[in-house]
Amino acid sequence: MKARIIVTLKTGVLDPQGKAIEGALKSFGLAGIDGVRQGKCFELEVAETDPAAARAKLTEACEKLLANTVIENYHIDLA
């Protein structure tokens, strides 16, 4: 089963990279794009065929390694 995990910064955590990207977008004259926040996306394959079991395994992966839950949230999408 394929899965995609999105890791994003929690609200309130300063994201200097996001701000710099937003500044670069504005410098192209692309107005009307605000609140840019940079995150990470992981694409992976899970041997598990049961969605609930796969989700449990990926949750453990996020909690243990893929996200730093001090500053990041994660979202798991199963294909």
């Binding site: 955590v13 300063l14 990279q17 001090v70 500053i71």
Partner: peptide
Amino acid sequence: LPGVLMRNASL
């Protein structure tokens, strides 16, 4: 230790 070290504000 608590907390985290993030990208320098200056980038």
